[in-house]
Design a protein around this nucleic acid. Structure first.
Lengths: 221, 221
DNA sequence: TATTATTTTTAGATTCGCTTAAATTTTATA
DNA sequence: TATAAAATTTAAGCGAATCTAAAAATAATA
C-alpha cells in the first residue's frame, strides 16, 4: 500500500465528487476548474494516476475511478467528514469555516487516528452539512433527498443537506438562521425568477433565491 | 506573514530543539542526522532560510534562529505538543504512538484551530511527555528538572519529563509501568555500568540502565 | 606543523506538481 | 459538410526539496 501524496488524494476525491452527478465520467476541464489548476496539469496527473491504476483515463474522452481509486477516494471523504464533524461538534466551529481546515486534515496519514476519532465522535453517520460519512469499510447511507429548488408547494420538508462548496453560502445560512433539520414548507414559488417563499419551523417566513434553493436538499416528512 | 512549508517549519523546529542543549548554535551534520537528510540538502535549505531571515547562518560555522525564526519554531512546538495532548487525553493513544501523527498535525495551518484546541484541552501547560506547551504568545514554563542519571541516592523525586525521540524507549516505559508523576527513589547506583536501582511509588523495585536514565528527568520533591 | 580525517559546501541531477504556449482532437455551427 | 470554436493534450520549463559525487574548509593527530 504505497501512500499517496495529498495532491493525488485530492484528485481522486474530486473525481469521485464530480462523477457522482454524472455516471462516473469526469472531464479534464471540470477537474481543472475544481482544483483551480490548468487543464495541462490535470492531463499530466491523470496520466500518472492511470499508470498507477487509480483511474481509467481515455484521452480526450474523460476519466473515472477504478475500484482501487474509489476505495481511496471514499476513505479521504471519510476523513474529511469526520474531521468536519469534530470541528463543529467539539471545537465549536461554525460550518462556514471548517472546509479549508478539513481539506488539510483529511490528508493526515494514520488509520488508527481516524478510527479513534470515529469512535470518539460516536460513529456519526452524517457530517455537519448533512453529507454521509463512510464507515471504515467504505459504506455510507445514501440520503434520500430532493433539491429544494424541485420541492413542491405546501408540503412539509426537513432541511437535511447543504452544499459545502461555498463558504459564502454557508455564511448566508447562518445569517438567516437556517439550520439542518429545520422544518421547511414552501408557501409560494415566483415563476418569473424562481424565487421561493418558505416558512421555517412553522414560524419564520423568508424568501430565498433560486441559487440558494439549488444548494439545499430536503427530505419529505 | 508568508506561510512556511512543512519542511521549512521542521527545520526551524529542529534547529530550536538541537540548540536548546547548546547555546543555540546548531551544526549542519546534527540537523542532517535529525532530519535524516544529506548534509548537502541541509546546507541548501539553510541558505534559503537565511535569505528569508529565519536563521543566522555562517558557512562552516553553524546556524541559529533569528527572533522571527524562534517565534515560528515555538509555535510549531506549541501545535505539536497540543496535538500530542489531545491524542493521549481524548483519543486514548499510548504515548509511544503519538509522535509521528503529531509530526503531521503540527503543520496544519490555522491559528483558529490551534487556539480552539488549546481551549478544548483546558490550556494545558505540559504535554504527555512532560514537555512544556507554549501559549499563544509563545511563553512556556521551563520545568526545573534534573536528569535521572545525575540524581542522588536516597532522595525523593518525581518523574516529570521523558525524551520523546524514541518510540522504543516509551514502549519500554509502558512495559515497566513507569508513568509521569510517579515517585522515584534511587536505592543504589552500580559504579561499573551506571545501572540504577530504584523504587517506584514506595512499592516496586526496578533496575534501569544508564541509557534509560539519561532519557528521564525528575523533579525534587 | 604537516598531513590526514572529518565536516561542510558546491555542482549537477532528479522527481513532483505546477505553469504557458503551441499543437491536436473533438464539438458546434454557419 | 466545411469551418470555427472549444476542449484537451503535448512540449518545454520552473521552483521546491531532495540526492550523489567532488571540492573546499576546518579539525584532529602524528
Amino acid at each position: 500500500m504505497t501512500t499517496l501524496s495529498a495532491v493525488e488524494e485530492n484528485y481522486l476525491k474530486y473525481i469521485f465528487q464530480l462523477g457522482e452527478t454524472q455516471d462516473g465520467l469526469v472531464k479534464t476541464n471540470d477537474l481543472a476548474y475544481k482544483l483551480d489548476h490548468s487543464a495541462a496539469s490535470v492531463t499530466d496527473m491523470l496520466k500518472k494516476l492511470s499508470d498507477k491504476r487509480f483511474v481509467a483515463y481515455k484521452k480526450y474522452y474523460g476519466v473515472s475511478l477504478t475500484k482501487l481509486g474509489l476505495q481511496i477516494a471514499v476513505q479521504v471523504l471519510r476523513k474529511h467528514r469526520l474531521w468536519e464533524t469534530f470541528l463543529v461538534k467539539n471545537l465549536k466551529f461554525t460550518w462556514d469555516k471548517i472546509h479549508d481546515i478539513a481539506e488539510q486534515l483529511e490528508h493526515i496519514q494514520s488509520d488508527e487516528l481516524i478510527d479513534k476519532m470515529d469512535e470518539y465522535l460516536g460513529f456519526p453517520k452524517f457530517d455537519p452539512h448533512g453529507d454521509p460519512i463512510p464507515d471504515k469499510q467504505g459504506n455510507m447511507l445514501i440520503p434520500n433527498v430532493i433539491c429544494l429548488a424541485d420541492a413542491k408547494l405546501k408540503k412539509q420538508y426537513i432541511l437535511s443537506n447543504v452544499n459545502d462548496d461555498s463558504a459564502a453560502f454557508l455564511k448566508y445560512l447562518n445569517k438567516i438562521q437556517l439550520q439542518l433539520n429545520d422544518k421547511i414548507k414552501i408557501t409560494d414559488k415566483e415563476e418569473f425568477d424562481e424565487t421561493i417563499q418558505l416558512i421555517i419551523n412553522d414560524k419564520k417566513q423568508i424568501t430565498i433565491s433560486k441559487d440558494a434553493a439549488q444548494n439545499m436538499f430536503v427530505k419529505v416528512v
